[in-house]
Write a protein that binds this DNA or RNA. Structure first.
Length: 641
RNA sequence: GCCGGUGUGGCUCAAUGGUAGAGCAGCUGAAUCGUAAUCAGCAGGUUGGGGGUUCAAGUCCCUUCACCGGCUCCA
C-alpha cells in the first residue's frame, strides 16, 4: 500500500500491518531517535501505530502538541510506581489535564505529603529502566478477565462501560493499563516531572461512591519549562486575594462571626462603593429601575416560589415571628415577583427592568467555602426583567452586552461564556413546557449569534426553571469562577401567576429574565483583587494619592494640598508619621497607592509638589493644577464630566 | 458534606515530651531625616476550643471549630 511521509515529502510503498516506526526505519532512520509519536491524518498516534492505505504520516517530537501524551504517559509511570509501592492498590483513571495530570487510586492507607518524594523516587527508577511502552488491542472480554485476575475491580467496571468490542492495553514492564493512548515510546522519554499534591476524589465524581486518593502532578519536556511553571505558580500564590485582602486591609472573615461571612473594611468598602456607583450609573443609562427588598420573608413566599422544594438544603432554618415562620432569603427573585404583582401591568409597560443589590444567605457546605470567592452571605448585583415573549431576545442581548461592557471596564478581557441547556436524557429534572424551553433556547442562541460570541454549550447545566448563559472569569491560579449569569425563567411567572394585559384585553404571562453581571460583590471583588494583584487602577484605588511630608514642620502645606485635592474629588491620605521619607515611601508602595506627593521645604518655597508614581517612580516637581489634570486624564471616560 | 493536611502574639515564623521565643506591626521616648525600613525601650500568649494520657503536653491520643488543597456543589 502507499502512504505519504510528510516530513520526507514523499509517497512510499509499504506492506500492510507495518508500524510507523518500521516505515521510518527504512526511509528516514535519521529522524527516529528524537521522535516520540506519529501524526496520522492529523491525529496523534503511537510510533508503533499501523497506518492504512493512503494515510498521511509525519513524526512528532518534543513540543506543545506532544505535551498531553507526555503527561498522560507520566501519569502511567506514577501509577506504576504506586503499584510497586502498594501492591494491594487499585488504580482507576489518570488523565492529562490543563496543567498536568492526575491519577486516582484506591489505597490500603491514606497518603501523606511525605509519600510524594517516595513515589517520585520510584518513578525515577522506572524512567531509568527505560521500559518499552507497548500498545495491544484485545477484546473487551479478554481485558475484563485480565483486570479481574489482577483484582482491579474499578478497571473491570470501566471496561464494561466501553461500547467498542475492542479496547487498547498499554504495557510497560510489569505494568498494564487500559488506555486509549497515545503514549511515549518508552518510560525513558518522560521529560521533567513533579508531583504536586494529594487530594480526595470520588470515583466518577459520584458522592455516593467511596472516595479515592488522587495524586496531582505535572510534566514538561524540559527542566526549564517545569521550573518556569513552578515559579509562575508560586508568583500566582502571592496574588491570592485572601493574602492581599488581609495585607491591604480590604476585608476579613473572622472566626468570631462565622465561616463564609465577610467584613468589608474601609478600603475594601471604598472600592465596593466605586463599583456600585459605576454599576448604578450604567444601569440608569440602560433603562433599568432600582428596587430593594427585605432580608427575610414569610415561609409561604418560598413555598410559592418553589425554593422550599428545590433549594431547601441551602436555606437557613426558619425563625419564628408572631407564630409565623420567616426565612432568610437565598435569592431575591420572589420579592420582585410580588412587587410586579402589586398592580395590573399592561403590555405597554414591558419590558420592566428592575435592578437590585440584594444580599442573600446560602448555607453552603463547609468544605466549599473559599475566601471571598465562595461565601455564605453575599450581595448579588441582581436584576429581574419582565418582558413579552417578543422582547425576550433583545433583552437577553442587552444583558449580554452590558455584561461584556462591565467586565471589559474592569479589565477582564478573557472570560469563558457557557450556554447551559437541559440534560435531554433526564427531562424530569426540569419544569415548564417543551415549547417554552425551545423558545428560550432559541432566544439565547439567536442573541449570541447576533453578537458574534464564541460559547460552549454545556448540557445538563440549565437551571430547573430554564436555560442560562453563564460567564466565568479566572482567579490567580486559573480556577474559573462564575460571575455573570443570565437565566430565562418561565417557572416563577407561572407560580406567582403574574400577568400583563395584552392589546386584545386578554391576560398574558410575561417571561422573566434573572441576571447578575458581577454575580456577587464578594466573588467579583475577590477575582478583581487577584486580577490586579491588589494594584488597582487609579479610578478604583481606595487611596489615589498619598501625601508624604518630608518633615513634620511642613504639615500645614501638606494639609492645604490635601484639601485642594479633596475638593477635586481625589481620594487622598496624608502620612503624618514621624518617619524617614524612605520609610513612608516603602509603606505607600506596599499599599499600592498610585501617586505619592513628596512635600518638603523645596516644594513649599516654590509652591510645587514632587510626584512619585508607584511604578514609574519619581516624576519630578510640578504644579498642583497640572497634577490634578494628570489624575483626571487617567480616569476612564465615564468618570470625566 | 467527603478525603488529606494545617492551627503558636495583629502579621511572618522558632521551640528532643522538660522555664513559650524572634523579626515586622503597635505603644513610649529620642533622632528632624529628600524617593523602598533611624535608634532605643515597653507591652503583647490559657499555643483555635473541650477532653484525655503523663511526674510533666505547643509537642502524644480523642473530639469539636476554623483554615488550606482537592472532590461534589455553586454567585
Amino acid at each position: 500500500m502507499k502512504v505519504k511521509l510528510v516530513d520526507l515529502n514523499k509517497v512510499v510503498e509499504v506492506d500492510h500491518n507495518i508500524t510507523v516506526f518500521d516505515i521510518y526505519s527504512t526511509y528516514g532512520k535519521e529522524l527516529l531517535p528524537d521522535a516520540l509519536l506519529s501524526l496520522i491524518n492529523g491525529e496523534l498516534k503511537d510510533l508503533s501505530a499501523k497506518p492504512d492505505e493512503g494515510d498521511t504520516i509525519s513524526l512528532v517530537y518534543a513540543g506543545k502538541e506532544a505535551l498531553e501524551p507526555l503527561r498522560h504517559s507520566v501519569s502511567h509511570i506514577m501509577a506504576q510506581a504506586v503499584r510497586r509501592l502498594f501492591p494491594e492498590s487499585q488504580y482507576t483513571i489518570g488523565p492529562a489535564i490543563e496543567d498536568g495530570f492526575y491519577y486516582d487510586f484506591h489505597l490500603p492507607r491514606p497518603l501523606a505529603p511525605e509519600d510524594l518524594p517516595v513515589i517520585s523516587e520510584e518513578m525515577d527508577k522506572i524512567v531509568k529502566e527505560n521500559l518499552v511502552i507497548v500498545a495491544e488491542k484485545v477484546s473487551k472480554d479478554e481485558a475484563m478477565n485480565l483486570f479481574a485476575s489482577l483484582g482491579q475491580n474499578y478497571k473491570v467496571e470501566l471496561i464494561a462501560e466501553i461500547e467498542d468490542e475492542w479496547v487498547t492495553l498499554y504495557r510497560q514492564g510489569e505494568y498494564v493499563d487500559l488506555c486509549r493512548g497515545p503514549h511515549m515510546p518508552s518510560t525513558g522519554k518522560s521529560g521533567s516531572f513533579q508531583l504536586i499534591s494529594i487530594a480526595g476524589a470520588y470515583f466518577k465524581g459520584d458522592e455516593k461512591r467511596p472516595m479515592l486518593q488522587r495524586i496531582y502532578g505535572t510534566a514538561f519536556f524540559t527542566r526549564e519549562e517545569l521550573d518556569g511553571f513552578l515559579k509562575q505558580r508560586e508568583e500566582a500564590l502571592k496574588r491570592d486575594h485572601r493574602k492581599l485582602g488581609k495585607e491591604l486591609e480590604f476585608f476579613s472573615i473572622e472566626d468570631e462571626i462565622g465561616a463564609g461571612l465577610v467584613l468589608w473594611h474601609p478600603k475594601g468598602a471604598m472600592i465596593r462603593k466605586i463599583i456600585e456607583d459605576f454599576w448604578r450609573d450604567e444601569h440608569l443609562k440602560r433603562g433599568y429601575g432600582f428596587v430593594f427588598s427585605p432580608h427575610i420573608g414569610r415561609e409561604s413566599l418560598w413555598q410559592t416560589s418553589g425554593h422550599l422544594s428545590f433549594y431547601s438544603e441551602y436555606m437557613y432554618s426558619p425563625m419564628e415571628v408572631d407564630e409565623q415562620k420567616y426565612l432568610i432569603k437565598p435569592m431575591n427573585c420572589p420579592f420582585a415577583m410580588v412587587a410586579y404583582k402589586s398592580k395590573t401591568r399592561s403590555y405597554k409597560d414591558l419590558p420592566l427592568r428592575w435592578a437590585e443589590l440584594g444580599t442573600v444567605y446560602r448555607n453552603e457546605r463547609s468544605g466549599v467555602l473559599h475566601g471571598l470567592l465562595r461565601v455564605r452571605g453575599f450581595t448579588q448585583d441582581d436584576a429581574h426583567i419582565f418582558c413579552r415573549p417578543d422582547q425576550l431576545k433583545d433583552e437577553i442581548k442587552n444583558a449580554i452586552e452590558l455584561a461584556q461592557y462591565i467586565l471589559e471596564t474592569f479589565g477582564f478581557h478573557e472570560y469563558s461564556i457557557e450556554f447551559s441547556v437541559r440534560d435531554l436524557e433526564n427531562k424530569s429534572k426540569y419544569v415548564g413546557e417543551e415549547k417554552a424551553w425551545e423558545m428560550a433556547g432559541e432566544a439565547i442562541e439567536q442573541s449570541m449569534k447576533e453578537l458574534g460570541l464564541n460559547y460552549k454549550v454545556i448540557e445538563g447545566e440549565a437551571k430547573f426553571y430554564g436555560p442560562a448563559i453563564d460567564i466565568k472569569i479566572k482567579d490567580a491560579i486559573g480556577r474559573l469562577w462564575q460571575c455573570t449569569t443570565i437565566q430565562v425563567d418561565f417557572n416563577l411567572p407561572q407560580r406567582f401567576n403574574i400577568i400583563y394585559m395584552g392589546p386584545d384585553g386578554k391576560e398574558y404571562q410575561p417571561v422573566m429574565v434573572h441576571r447578575a453581571i458581577l454575580g456577587s460583590f464578594e466573588r467579583f471583588f475577590g477575582t478583581l483583587i487577584e486580577h490586579y494583584s491588589g494594584a488597582f487602577p487609579l479610578w478604583l484605588s481606595p487611596v489615589q494619592v498619598k501625601i508624604l511630608p518630608v518633615k513634620p514642620d511642613i504639615s500645614e502645606y501638606a494639609e492645604n494640598i490635601s484639601r485642594e485635592l479633596k475638593k477635586n474629588k481625589i481620594r487622598v491620605e496624608v502620612d503624618n508619621r514621624e518617619e524617614a521619607l524612605s520609610a513612608k515611601i516603602k509603606t505607600a508602595q506596599h499599599e499600592q497607592v498610585p501617586y505619592m506627593l513628596i512635600l518638603g521645604k523645596r516644594e513649599q518655597e516654590v509652591n510645587l509638589i514632587a510626584v512619585r508614581e508607584r511604578r514609574k517612580g519619581d516624576l519630578g516637581a510640578m504644579d498642583l493644577l497640572k497634577f490634578i489634570e494628570l489624575v483626571k486624564e487617567e480616569l476612564p471616560s465615564f468618570l470625566k464630566e
